[in-house]
């Protein structure tokens, strides 16, 4: 996935961070998706920045993780979110 793309969130998505997880909820179907601590961090960062490249760099600064591993994990997450229509990519 191209990390320079702009991410937006459909109006039917609810997002809430809890202690060690986040819940993403599709208002249309009431289906919900739980994100673990790392997934939450990714998602909330993307939510703030509306872009993946900026989020990517911030997370890379914050955590001791290799660039390749982070790219792989973030790409995985974005693919999942796209599959379930939880994000839109422009």
């Amino acid at each position: 996935m191209n990390f320079n793309q702009v991410i937006s969130f459909p109006s039917y998505i609810m997002f809430q961070e809890f202690d060690n997880e986040s819940i993403l909820l599709d208002i249309r179907s009431q289906e919900h998706f739980a994100l673990d601590a790392i997934g939450s961090l990714f998602f909330s960062q993307i939510h703030k920045d509306s872009g993946t490249q900026e989020s990517f760099e911030k997370i890379l600064d914050l955590y001791e993780v290799s660039k390749e591993q982070l790219e792989k994990d973030l790409d995985n997450l974005l693919q999942q979110l796209l599959k379930y229509e939880l994000i839109e990519v422009k």
Partner: peptide
């Protein structure tokens, strides 16, 4: 979420 689902 219940409220928004109903509104939707």
């Amino acid at each position: 979420a219940q409220l928004l689902h109903l509104v939707y």
